[in-house]
Design a protein around this nucleic acid. Structure first.
Lengths: 229, 229
DNA sequence: CACCCGACAGCACTCAGTTCCCTCACAGGA
DNA sequence: TCCTGTGAGGGAACTGAGTGCTGTCGGGTG
């Protein structure tokens, strides 16, 4: 559709990263980039609204893809599982270009301005999760609270796994690491939005006996009980 | 100690907010602020490293207070509860000046640059939580993952409650709202770092029977079982 | 052919943030 | 009293990001 010929855009990204890597982000001016790319200064800002945007050239597309993915969800599906699927979409963007992702990771790690920019990007993903969950959990007790907390937890799990993969320079199994992290979140928050009318409650019997034990002990015990399956 | 006479600093904050409120953040230049405050331009940047910092004049102090609070924790306490205590500290900073907090909320809501700045501030709080939890959960299975996810969940719960209080223009009970939100998080994540050797496991008996039911149904049932107490 | 339109170059401008240097007040010490 | 150090503030000049505007070229369409 709109991906006809962004040749100039790619050239700008390449020139920018070449300079960022060899002399640092803050030591590189936009004029440096455009002279290396052989284009006019004004053209840079046609393709990237700010100098920071050239570091994250694919996030805008990924964000729209992800919101579209969530909007196209089957209304009967498990909402938490659906959000986890969306996270896997984001992960794929990183794993498609391991070297590029690792280079960018090293840059953002040491430039505070880029870290702030990355935060705002992650926040937009998280908001997309939360908006979707709010729609699915509407009407439930504490629906928006649950949506916000679960969205934050999913994003945090993804970031934790992603960062450990990036620290390994793109070696290691990113998919498996993220899967494990998501598993932890899914264990913590059951599937709070699924309709309960479909399955009769007789399918599940829970007996909990606590004699003065604090709540965290009960939860710990339930965890280990469930892990036996 | 260091809070001797920041008279000029306060004057700058007052002048800045007066202009921000009457003509907007982006329509106000730093020169406008310093001429209204009757000081030199250079003095502004002596007190605030950037124009955005004048909008959040107390966060830096609050952040150091909070990290000190966490560092001074009793090593035997429940780590999740301790982080919740730290969150209450942050909340207090907002509730101490309701009108100021509400004005700032309205500003940050409509200025993208300020939203990004606020994100980086919230992120630093979240990192403080996560660092503390990482220390407490060290050695446990998935310690850092749990720490990151729980920190994100606590921050999200706090933000959810805080925002709903701010939207009510400072009416409504902020403490109670946050308490409720934190209760949800504490229910979701037991107390994963507490030593289990102190209490004999006989205090808790858990029996879960599931006949083909999906995991989220089991968790739902456990939730309602525990809520009966 | 005239016309338009989209991509690009380039210039000039605003404003945030920094560097450097100046003034002034105030302290202490000979 | 004079000298001097010091620290807070004032202010000019500079860098660099981002914007607005104008001009230009090429390629379609009537």
């Amino acid at each position: 559709m709109s991906s006809t010929k962004p040749a100039m855009r790619d050239a700008l990204v390449a020139a920018a990263f070449q300079l960022f890597l060899e002399r640092g982000y803050e030591q590189t001016t936009v004029d440096d980039i455009v002279t290396l790319a052989g284009v006019g200064r004004r053209s840079f800002f046609r393709y990237f609204p700010s100098k920071e945007d050239v570091v994250f050239p694919d996030h805008e597309r990924c964000l729209t893809d992800m919101t579209a993915f969530l909007a196209a969800s089957d209304p009967g599906c498990d909402p938490l599982e659906r959000v986890c699927e969306a996270v896997r979409l984001v992960l794929r963007m990183y794993t498609e270009n391991p070297t590029f992702s690792v280079q960018r990771y090293r840059l953002t790690k040491q430039v505070p301005g880029l870290r702030a920019y990355e935060l705002s990007v992650v926040w937009r993903y998280e908001r997309a999760f939360a908006e979707y969950l709010r729609g699915r959990l509407k009407g439930l007790h504490d629906g928006t609270l649950r949506a916000d907390v679960i969205a934050a937890a999913v994003a945090a799990a993804h970031n934790n796994a992603l960062r450990s993969w990036l620290r390994s320079d793109g070696h290691g199994d990113a998919e498996q690491t993220v899967e494990h992290a998501l598993g932890y979140v899914q264990a913590a928050f059951g599937a709070p939005g699924a309709p309960s009318a479909d399955e009769p409650p007789e399918d599940v019997v829970v007996i909990v006996s606590r004699r003065g034990a604090p709540l965290w002990r009960v939860v710990q015990e339930i965890e280990s009980t469930l892990e036996r399956d």
